[in-house]
Nucleic acid binder design. Structure first.
Length: 550
DNA sequence: CGAACTTGCGCC
DNA sequence: AAAGGGCGCAAGTTCG
C-alpha cells in the first residue's frame, strides 16, 4: 500500500492512501498514525523529504520501513534529464578551483514549510494544496521514470536513495558509540593537557620552538606555509610548497619537528577537545549525513567531518557492554565495479580472488602487486604521470573491455557529454564557461581548453566507477537495513562510509548480523549488476573496538 | 570588519 | 614514491 503524507508542522499532517478514493486524512499525530498504519500493513510512504520528517519520528520511537523521498527522487531525475536543480557540490568545487563562475543555486523542490509547492520548469500552476501538489509530483516522477530506457534501474536507485535517507536519519539518531575518556587520554598523551582557550597545547609549543631553533632561532609560524618555504630558501633549499610529502624529501633538522607538528596540529585542530565538545554527547558521535550530497551518489556530512575520521581515533569507537560492533568493508569495490560494468570476462575471473590486486598482478604484472594497483588506479582516475602510461598499456592489452569502458567515459566528458552510473545517476553537464573555454579557437586559449577538456574527462571517467560503486553500496545498505528490521530488530546501523558499514548490536545477534551483511552484499550485486560473474566480498568482523577491524 | 580565497590534510 | 577521482574543515591572508 502506498500512502502519501505531507507534514504540516507541530506533528500534524495530512495524508492520502493512493489508489483509494476519498477525502484526505487529517492526522493530529504523525508519528503515532504512521506507526500504527505500518504495523497493520506493509506501507510504502511517499514523503516530501525524509531528512525533515524522520528526526521527529525517531524521537517518538518510530522507524519507517520503506519510503519514496520526493525531493531526492527529483534530484536524481533532474540530473538524469540534464536539467538544473541538482546538488551543486561538484560543479561548484570545479568552478572555484578554476576561477570559473559557479553554477546557479539549486532550485527549491518540494519544501513543506513553503506554502507554494511547485515544479520547477514545468509550467504547471502551483497547486494550492500541498497534498495535491505532492500527489501530482509523484505522478509526474513516475511518468518520467517510465519513459527512460531502464525504468527498473532508476526505480531501484530512487528506492535505495530513499532508504538511505531513512538510514542516515537513524544513524544520526543512534550515533556512533564514542568513548570520550579514551579520546581524551589519546589527546593528552600526544598533545599534553588541554590548553586554556586561545593557547596552544604544550607539545605543539615545544615543536614550534624546535622548528625555530633549527632555523637559527628565528621565529617561524608553522601554520603559515609561505614562511616555511621562505625559511628553507634562506638555508639554500628551494621547495615548491610546504606540503608534508615535499618536506619528507628534504634533509634538514627542521623537517622532523615540522612533520610532527603538522600531524599533531591536525589532530588538535580537527579532532581535538573542541571537536569532542561539539560533536560527542552521551557517548555518541552524531554527525548529520547529507544523502545525495555528492553528485556521484556518495554521501556528504555537515559538521564533524564524519567521513574523514582519522584512523588513530578509531580506538575511541567501542561497543557498549554486552554489545559488539560489526565492521564490514567491501574490499576493492571500485575495480570490481568496473569489472561488472564492462562485462570483461577475464577481469571477472581475476575478481574471484579475495585480494583482487594480487590476482591481477599474478595474471598480468609478473606478480608485482604494487604495479598492478597503480595500473588499476590509473585506469579509474585517469592517471598520466610516471609509470602510469606503460602500466595502463599492459592492462589494456589484457583487459581491453574494462579499459575501454573508462576510456569511453573519459571521451564523453572531453566532448561535453554526460555519463551515467549503472542505475542511472547522471554526471552534471559541464558549465557554459567550460564549453566556451573548450571551443575557443584562439591559439593561446586552445591549450587551456584542451586541459579543461582532459580534466573533465578524468572526472567523467571516474564518475562511472565511483557512482556505480555508490549504487552498489547504497543498495547494499538499503537491503541490509530491511533485513535487520526483521532478523535483528535491536541492531543499529551506526556508520556508513562509501564502501563500509558498521552495525552496533547485542553480542547475541552478532552471527545473525554477519550473515545478513554478507547476504545483503550478494543481493545488492544481483540487484545492481544482474548475473555478473564478478564477486563483491563484504566480510564483517565482530570487534569491541573499531580500531581492531582489519 | 567579514567574505572570499588559498593552502594543506584527513577519509574513501 | 607520487598522482590520477570525490569530499569537509580550519587556518592564514587578501579583498572589498
Amino acid at each position: 500500500m502506498r500512502v502519501i503524507v505531507v507534514p504540516e508542522g507541530e506533528g500534524t499532517a495530512r495524508a492520502r492512501v493512493l489508489d483509494e478514493p476519498g477525502a484526505p486524512i487529517a492526522i493530529p499525530d504523525v508519528a503515532a498514525w504512521m506507526a500504527e498504519r505500518q504495523r497493520e500493513t506493509d506501507v510504502r510512504w511517499i514523503i516530501p523529504a525524509a531528512d525533515e520528517l524522520c528526526p521527529a519520528l525517531l524521537a517518538a520511537g518510530v522507524r519507517l520501513g520503506r519510503c519514496h523521498d520526493l525531493s531526492l527522487a527529483e534530484g536524481i531525475l533532474l540530473a538524469f534529464e540534464e536539467r538544473p536543480g541538482r546538488p551543486r557540490n561538484l560543479g561548484a568545487a570545479y568552478a572555484r578551483t578554476r576561477g570559473l563562475p559557479e553554477p546557479a543555486d539549486p532550485r527549491p523542490l518540494i519544501r513543506t514549510e513553503q506554502p507554494a509547492l511547485f515544479e520547477p520548469d514545468r509550467g504547471t500552476a502551483p497547486a494550492a494544496d500541498p497534498l495535491d501538489a505532492a500527489v501530482a509530483v509523484l505522478a509526474d516522477q513516475e511518468r518520467r521514470i517510465a519513459n527512460t530506457a531502464h525504468p527498473d534501474r532508476l526505480r531501484l536507485l530512487i528506492a535505495a536513495e530513499s532508504a538511505g535517507a531513512l538510514a542516515a536519519a537513524e544513524m544520526t539518531y543512534y550515533g556512533l558509540p564514542w568513548r570520550v575518556d579514551i579520546h581524551t587520554e589519546l589527546l593528552t598523551d600526544l598533545l599534553g593537557p588541554r590548553p586554556s582557550p586561545g593557547a596552544r597545547p604544550a607539545k605543539l609549543n615545544d615543536l614550534a620552538e624546535r622548528i625555530s631553533d633549527a632555523f637559527s632561532g628565528r621565529p617561524i609560524n608553522p601554520d603559515h606555509p609561505p614562511s616555511i618555504v621562505r625559511a628553507f630558501a634562506r638555508e639554500g633549499i628551494e621547495i615548491p610548497s610546504a606540503r608534508a610529502w615535499v618536506l619528507k624529501e628534504v634533509e634538514h633538522p627542521a623537517v622532523e619537528p615540522l612533520l610532527a607538528y603538522k600531524e599533531l596540529s591536525r589532530l588538535y585542530v580537527a579532532h581535538g577537545w573542541s571537536w569532542l565538545d561539539s560533536w560527542v554527547d552521551n557517548g555518541r558521535f552524531r554527525p548529520e549525513y547529507v544523502v545525495g550530497g555528492v553528485v556521484s551518489g556518495r554521501w556528504a556530512t555537515r559538521g564533524g567531518a564524519a567521513l574523514q575520521l582519522p584512523r588513530t581515533l578509531r580506538t575511541a569507537v567501542r561497543a557498549d557492554p554486552g554489545w559488539t560492533l560489526m565492521v564490514a568493508d567491501a574490499s576493492q569495490l571500485e575495480p570490481r565495479v568496473l569489472g561488472a560494468l564492462s562485462g570483461d570476462r577475464r577481469f571477472a575471473e581475476v575478481s574471484a580472488s579475495e585480494d583482487l590486486y594480487t590476482s591481477l598482478a599474478a595474471d598480468a604484472f609478473d606478480g608485482d602487486r604494487g604495479r598492478a594497483k597503480i595500473a588499476m588506479l590509473s585506469a579509474m582516475y585517469g592517471g598520466t604521470s610516471g609509470e602510469a602510461g606503460p602500466l595502463l598499456a599492459v592492462l589494456r592489452k589484457r583487459f581491453p573491455h574494462a579499459v575501454d569502458y573508462v576510456e569511453q567515459a573519459a571521451r564523453a566528458g572531453e566532448e561535453g557529454r554526460v555519463v551515467r552510473s549503472r542505475l542511472g545517476r547522471t554526471s552534471p553537464p559541464p558549465s557554459d564557461a567550460w564549453r566556451e573555454l573548450t571551443s575557443d579557437p584562439d591559439e593561446t586559449a586552445e591549450r587551456r581548453g584542451r586541459q579543461a577538456a582532459r580534466e573533465w574527462g578524468r572526472f567523467t571517467r571516474n564518475f562511472v566507477v565511483q557512482a556505480s560503486a555508490a549504487d552498489w553500496a547504497l543498495t547494499m545498505l538499503a537491503t541490509l537495513r530491511r533485513r535487520l528490521t526483521t532478523s535483528a530488530p535491536e541492531a543499529e546501523i551506526v556508520f556508513f562510509q562509501h564502501d563500509e558499514v558498521i552495525v552496533h548490536c547485542p553480542q547475541a545477534a552478532a552471527d545473525v548480523v554477519a550473515k545478513e551483511i554478507s547476504e545483503a552484499a550478494d543481493q545488492a550485486t544481483a540487484l545492481v549488476f544482474g548475473d555478473t560473474p564478478v564477486r563483491f566480498p563484504l566480510i564483517a568482523a565482530a570487534v569491541d573496538c573499531y580500531a581492531d577491524a582489519k
